[in-house]
């Protein structure tokens, strides 16, 4: 079954814990990432009332270096990024199960890597 990481990115605060946890787990050198944040905003919409008046979205991107934390997940543990996510907005599992969480109530992104 294909595994992936689902992100409830309405709540991703851009705290960088996933990034740094991943770098420490994979022992990555300067400038390399297994997961890296992208940022949009902050800027204002003229036509949207609060709480959607401001745009400020963070979303982590998973790179080719990510091995979905094989060393941990084969033991049943969570990937290091998921374990440390301060907003607990990252979920790891089978993509089919994860996709079921995408309920239209918040903003979700499902990231699956090559097997």
């Amino acid at each position: 079954m294909t595994k992936g990481i689902l992100i409830n990115y309405d709540y991703c605060t851009g705290c960088h814990s996933c990034e740094v946890a991943c770098k420490k787990t994979l022992g990555l050198p300067e400038g390399e990432f297994g997961i890296k944040l992208t940022e949009v905003g902050p800027y204002e919409y003229t036509d949207k009332p609060a709480p959607d008046h401001w745009e400020w979205t963070w979303l982590p991107v998973i790179t080719k270096a990510c091995d979905l934390c094989m060393g941990r997940t084969t033991k049943g543990k969570m990937p290091s990024c998921v374990q440390h996510c301060q907003a607990w907005c990252m979920y790891y599992g089978d993509v089919e199960d994860l996709a079921k969480k995408m309920d239209g109530k918040t903003r979700w992104a499902l990231l699956a890597t090559r097997e």
Partner: peptide, 13 residues
Amino acid sequence: TQGRLCPRCIALK
């Protein structure tokens, strides 16, 4: 904190 950490402790080593 339930297992969560900020980057400063993650990089403690």
